[in-house]
Design a protein around this nucleic acid. Structure first.
Length: 483
RNA sequence: GGCCCCUUGGUCAAGCGGUUAAGACAUCGCCCUUUCACGGCGGUAACAGGAGUUCGAUUCUCCUAGGGGUCACCA
């Protein structure tokens, strides 16, 4: 048997990380077993439909490399793959169930139901549909139907007995039929409910393994009653955990950083996000942490899936992203960094040198402008920056050093990294001082910052001769004035 | 509230009757060093609680507690 899995998102906006991970696991499971991965769009709720959301789904999945074998835009033998285009196929299936005595027409008005529910709750009872309309005779039903009375079709759940199934991750799940409600299959508007459409779609599309969030765990026995009523073979169920923001709340839309796009915008690498998310709730069984999508396909298995929810740790994602950045070829780093260079006003500077000083220090690309702002524009700084114990320097020493360094640099022919480096290090040696004693004041005067990416040499080079010398002179003037 | 599920350091997480209870992130300290970062070395830190079963429980069972999910003509 060929394994067939599906990812069935609702087009309601951007790609939530929880959804992304569900899609990923579903994809990985199919690929690992040489099966098919199907994309189905669940858009039965037109009220929640968001324009362009389907494209977001396509773009995100493809951008990551998760290609689907069947779906709305690529076709397949089990189409259509958009639920709204399948709306006519559900009612016949529901009628088939009515014929078989596994479902029934219900004419109860919404208001009546709500009243009865309120009564039950007032008595402290749990409301369950009372099968009021199940007792209607064939004639009564036919009459109401003929009269055009609005109706829904409900699943007829046995009053007693046990409904159970075995989940791959959670094991045996059993619930008492007495606790199950007669859920609505077809709504008054003729459209199927999500639950019913899901069962029909999954079966008619030949889905063998249903992978979905564990919020469906408790209702799955009900789904299976439907499969049984149709005499369809039940799929294998794999319920997945949620991603949490903390122990109490799941990662949700209002956290502002629950979306894949949010992280891309902040300068995270797609590969790092996917890698991190894959590890949230799954482990390969060995010590590996870094995986390409292909490696994930190879390593993935349900044995490694966790049954308890995982809390999203932005710090670890950031660490992983930094690792991915460090492993980039310098040229690739530059491709990602360039937009940020431009916005920081240093787009004209030597990208090889920028990469050399920034790549090891960049955790997320959006940090770059803040790190390099001083290169584009000199910043105010206090004299206290010239004091550093380890480098054995203070404003007096700094003034002396800078005054002696300035003419040497002015005379330097070769304004390159090597040229500046050899000159400065050479001077420190000749003058018999620690490298730091000479380099610290120079770097402070050049950058105006205590902490900078790169050292005095790189900064002097990037600034260019004129600007570097100007900043040195300004530093000397500042030290002479003493403020 | 009924029903279902979950519970190893701050976080991810290994473990599947006998371990000094891995590893990673974070954190702390030291080293390297031209600041920071990178890198190297090391430290702190966990089996929710209680009964069983067993020669022996983190591991199996039950109970309690805490947390989550679900009880719609929403998906």
């Amino acid at each position: 048997m060929t394994i067939r899995t599906r990812f069935a998102p609702s087009p309601t906006g951007y790609m939530h990380l929880g959804n992304l991970r569900s899609a990923l696991y579903t994809y990985l499971f199919a690929r690992h077993h040489g099966g098919a991965f199907i994309l189905r769009i669940e858009d039965t709720d037109q009220a929640r439909f968001v324009e362009g959301a389907v494209d977001v789904i396509y773009r995100t999945l493809r951008g990551i490399g998760m290609e689907w074998d069947e779906g709305p835009d690529v076709g397949g033998a089990f189409g259509p793959y958009v639920q709204s285009e399948r709306k006519d196929m559900y009612l016949p299936y529901a009628r088939q169930l009515v014929e078989a005595g596994k479902a029934y027409y219900c004419f109860c008005a919404k208001e009546d139901l709500e009243a009865r529910r309120a009564e039950a709750e007032a008595r402290g009872e749990v409301w369950k549909y009372d099968k009021h309309c199940k007792c209607l005779s064939h004639e009564e039903v036919a009459a109401k139907l003929a009269a055009g009375e609005p109706y829904v079709i409900r699943q007829d759940v046995p009053l007693s007995g046990e409904a159970s199934f075995d989940d791959v991750i959670y094991g045996h799940i059993a619930v008492d039929c007495a606790d199950l409600d007669d859920m609505i299959l077809i709504k008054a508007d003729g459209m199927p409910t999500y639950n019913f459409a899901n069962v029909v779609d999954d079966h008619t599309m030949g889905i063998t393994h249903v992978m979905r969030g564990n919020e469906y765990l408790a209702s799955t026995p009900k789904y299976n009653l439907l499969y049984d009523a149709f005499e369809w073979e039940r799929p294998v169920y794999i319920h997945m955990t949620q991603i949490m923001r903390d122990a109490q709340h799941k990662l949700s839309k209002r956290d502002g950083d629950a979306y894949y796009e949010d992280f891309i915008d902040k300068g995270y690498l797609s590969e790092a996000i996917v890698n991190y998310v894959a590890l949230l709730g799954w482990n390969p069984g060995d010590e590996r942490e870094f995986f390409t999508l292909a490696e994930l396909c190879e390593a993935f298995g349900v044995e490694g899936m966790s049954k308890s929810p995982a809390i999203f740790d932005a710090q670890k994602l950031t660490w992983m992203n930094a690792e991915y950045i460090r492993r980039l070829a310098p040229e690739t780093f530059t491709v990602h960094a360039l937009p940020y260079y431009r916005s920081a006003g240093i787009g004209h500077m030597d990208t090889a040198v920028l990469a050399a000083i920034l790549q090891q220090r960049t955790e997320i690309f959006s940090q770059i402008p803040g790190m390099v702002a001083f290169l584009a524009k000199a910043e105010e700084y206090p004299l206290s920056y010239f004091t550093n114990k380890k480098s054995k320097t203070n404003p007096d020493i700094a003034l002396d050093v800078l005054k002696r360094v300035l003419p040497e640099l002015e005379a330097l022919q070769d304004w390159s990294i090597a040229g500046i480096h050899d000159l400065l290090i050479g001077l420190a040696q000749v003058w018999g001082m620690k490298n730091g004693t000479l380099l610290w004041p120079v770097r402070i005067a050049l950058s105006g910052r205590e902490v900078t990416p790169g050292g005095a040499v790189e900064i002097a080079y990037l600034l260019g001769r004129d600007e570097a010398l100007a900043r040195l002179r300004a530093g000397i003037a500042k030290l002479e004035v003493g403020e």
